[in-house]
Design a protein around this nucleic acid. Structure first.
Length: 579
RNA sequence: GCGCCCGUAGCUCAGGGGACAGAGCAGCGGCCUUCUAAGCCGCUGGCCGAAGGUUCGAAUCCUUCCGGGCGUACCA
């Protein structure tokens, strides 16, 4: 695998890419790039500017396999018309082809305003298949991260109720991003940050107490801003069975008991919901620890030292706006209690002290203002901007028979993640949650998700995997010790070359999905690869009397199943042997 | 009002400077004595929200406007 480092410049995405966008070239792209580069050198006697070196796969067979717009891009620099540049490049490529019998290009054309269209030799494409098996790392993995650590913090919902489908999107998004960063060479720590004390927990305890008293026939209003959901009734019943005594007063003793039980039981509910989705954390970080360790005061002092705060109307404010924040915000309320923002800043200092090279927070779009203020505070303290990234996602609506449901935890009006997972299964939930780009709203189509057919993209991909495994069982194929013993030149069908070119792209997709926070690209890729496989399967027989051909096709399918398996693994979905 | 995100086929969305705009669902029509039909093939369907600009080239970049979501708390 070859790497090129290009200036980042154009990337507006807020991702850990070291200030540079690292472009990785696949096996085939390396061949094509070399052809273009050396043709340019031959034709113009100079190294082309890296910004001219653009190639991409074509979307139409008549345009060849790869195309480059280098002639248009270099036109003003060379003060020459694109078509003229193209002719010279074409001539240089022709000379290359004549002098090199193993040249990867079979022919080249100039088209349209000056595109260089390259038609590849089948051997060049077949060579890429070998690269699937030849790597030191699993195909699609790379060492871009150089073993640096990145902490991914996500979900981080307070233990005040079950997780909703909205949390589910964040859980899957964070987990898939974590898996992606692992694939590109980072050491990843998944962390869940939760608040187990404070005003919300008090409200929770009081709401639970009210439910508890209801069981003794006493009506107590659930506090305003309290938690109305039915789930607390179940908890109250369990507690009644255990304690078997009323608590008529919400005194300090009761408060402490109900708070403790509420947090304990809500936390274990949350852990169950996440486990059911196959989302696991390495670290559970308690906000209370920050308070107890005196980190709030210490952080405030750091900000003071940098002239980052001021007093106004009895409260202490962060000078966020001066440092890129959305607006100045309160850190310490006039009654002396710290705000959520204050604690959040202290938390990020703690993350930094723990030595993570990069930190990635996955959050909902409703936290945007908060994010800019945290960044402002860290900037003030002299942290490099790229240390902290936010992957922001929009909300989820459930759609059933065209009906869209809006949710609110506090009002007790929601569909729980647990119910959704029980209904659809982990794989379907994960696929649907990740299949849209994070910054777009997600309409979760329950009717489609429930379909147990090819209509359902989740099962469609798994079925492709299953079909290949089934062929392997039939052929008693266990994979090749040495792929070089297989005659890949027999793989000349258009569908076969298409599959190989698609496989070749996989490492690119993984890098893009990770550093651009675009895990949906992987879901899309898996779907397209499955489609290409199903079409191939339908048109060409793999198991035949022709031993060499069968062997070559099994090798191709082995590569497909490896990549499909990796796709499913990164998405956190099962790869079933049979369906 | 201001800030962020989103407007692409009837519906849900890919594509985010390149050559006639893609997929799934829905609709219509085909394909199972052969590796799992949870599959394949074909047809139907679009002034890429609107208008200006930048460019050899704009769905894509910029500006304005329109529509939707979120934020704009001494909530978390």
């Amino acid at each position: 695998m070859a790497y090129e480092r290009l200036p980042c410049g154009s990337s507006s995405k807020d991702s850990p890419c070291f200030g540079t966008l690292t472009a990785m070239l696949t096996y085939v792209e390396t061949l094509v790039m070399d052809v273009i580069r050396s043709a340019y050198q031959t034709a113009f006697g100079a190294e082309p500017s890296p910004s001219f070196l653009v190639i991409r796969p074509t979307d139409r067979p008549e345009f060849g396999d790869y195309t480059s717009n280098i002639a248009m891009l270099a036109a003003s620099h060379l003060k020459t018309a694109p078509r003229d540049i193209g002719s010279k490049l074409l001539q240089a490529i022709s000379e290359q082809i004549e002098s090199d019998p193993s040249h990867p290009v079979s022919r080249a054309e100039i088209a349209g305003p000056g595109f260089i269209n390259l038609f590849l030799e089948p051997t060049a494409v077949q060579g890429s298949l070998r690269s699937v098996f030849d790597n030191d790392l699993p195909f699609g993995s790379s060492d871009l991260g150089k073993g640096k650590t990145i902490q991914v913090e996500f979900v981080s919902s307070n233990p005040t109720g079950p997780l909703t489908v909205g949390h589910g999107r964040q859980a899957v998004l964070g987990d898939v991003l974590a898996r992606l960063y692992e694939r590109i060479g980072y050491k990843v720590v998944r962390e869940y940050y939760f608040n187990d004390e404070g005003q919300q927990i008090d409200l929770l305890a009081q709401s639970l107490w009210a439910r508890y008293q209801e069981l003794y026939g006493e009506t107590h209003d659930i506090p305003e801003n309290g938690y109305q959901g039915d789930y607390l009734i179940l908890v109250a019943k369990a507690l009644k069975d255990e304690w078997n005594r009323p608590y008529s007063q919400f005194d300090e003793d009761a408060k402490s008991r109900f708070r403790h039980e509420a947090v304990k039981r809500m936390t274990s509910l949350i852990k169950r919901d996440l486990r059911e989705l196959d989302v696991h954390f390495d670290s559970w970080f308690s906000e209370a620890d920050l308070h107890q360790a005196g980190k709030i005061e210490a952080t405030l002092q750091l900000l003071r030292d940098k002239q980052g705060v001021y007093e106004h109307e009895g409260a202490t404010w962060l000078r966020a706006e001066e440092h890129g924040g959305a607006k100045d915000s309160v850190l310490i309320r006039s009654d002396g209690r710290p705000t959520y923002l204050m604690v959040d800043i202290a938390y990020h200092i703690n993350k930094h002290e723990r030595g993570f090279d990069y930190v990635l927070n996955v959050q909902g779009a409703d936290h945007h203002a908060e994010q800019t203020c945290v960044k402002a505070a860290l900037r003030l303290l002299g942290y490099p901007d790229e240390w902290l990234s936010y992957a922001v996602h929009q909300f989820v609506s459930l759609k059933e028979d065209g009906q869209v449901q809006k949710m609110s935890t506090r009002a007790g009006r929601f569909v729980t993640l647990h119910d959704l997972t029980q209904d659809l299964g982990k794989d379907v939930v994960r696929y649907f949650m990740i299949s849209r780009k994070p910054e777009a709203h997600l309409d979760f189509d329950l009717d489609l998700a429930r379909a147990e057919s090819s209509d359902n993209p989740s099962t469609y991909i798994q079925y492709a995997y299953t079909r290949i495994r089934s062929i392997f069982r039939k052929a008693e194929f266990v994979g090749f010790e040495d792929v070089n013993q297989t005659d890949l030149s027999l793989l000349t069908e258009a569908e076969e070359l298409g599959l190989m070119k698609m496989l070749d792209q996989f490492p690119q997709v993984v890098v893009h999905a990770a550093i651009d926070f675009a895990p949906h690209a992987l879901a899309e890729y898996g779907l397209n690869l499955s489609r290409a496989f199903h079409a191939y399967y339908d048109k060409h027989r793999v198991l035949t009397d022709n031993v060499s051909l069968q062997s070559a096709r099994l090798t191709l399918l082995n590569a497909v199943v490896i990549v499909l398996g990796e796709c499913l693994a990164i998405l956190g979905m099962d790869a079933p042997e049979e369906m």
